[in-house]
């Protein structure tokens, strides 16, 4: 199942910040995590992740640094900032409200906690 593009667009920030809250990650890793955790439902065009990451960095929600990964390759890692954590909390709350509202419309409270 693939989601509507707009819907993914709205929540990518939430997803990325959540992944970065667990640990510092580099772009390719973020894509793989998104895919595997969503059973491949989130398959965004991989290159479009970078404008989002750079925006998050410009907004001060993440910071980046270079470090060597396995195979000795340099990678650019992203790390969530304190501001980013605050934003994540907000985004989570918004998402919960949103999904609750959708569930109310489509079939009652049951889905909200499902």
């Amino acid at each position: 199942m693939e989601f509507d593009k707009g819907l993914i667009g709205g929540s990518t920030v939430l997803l990325i910040l959540s992944l970065l809250e667990e640990t510092d990650r580099y772009g390719y890793e973020i894509i793989r995590e998104l895919e595997s955790r969503s059973d491949r439902a989130f398959q965004l065009k991989e290159g479009t992740l970078y404008p989002i990451l750079h925006k998050l960095e410009n907004d001060g929600y993440v910071e980046s640094y270079k470090a060597k990964g396995e195979r000795g390759r340099d990678r650019k890692y992203y790390k969530i900032t304190r501001n980013g954590k605050r934003q994540l909390a907000k985004e989570k709350e918004q998402w919960e409200k949103f999904s609750m509202s959708v569930n109310k419309v489509i079939g009652g409270e049951l889905y909200a906690t499902d």
Binding site: K45, E46, G47, T48, Y50, P51, H54, K55, N58
Partner: peptide, 17 residues
């Protein structure tokens, strides 16, 4: 192919820089 459209990525990145 998986990366997506180079032009789209370029334009979006340019907006951030």
């Amino acid at each position: 192919r998986d990366m997506g459209d180079a032009k789209e990525i370029g334009i979006l990145l340019n907006k951030q820089h």
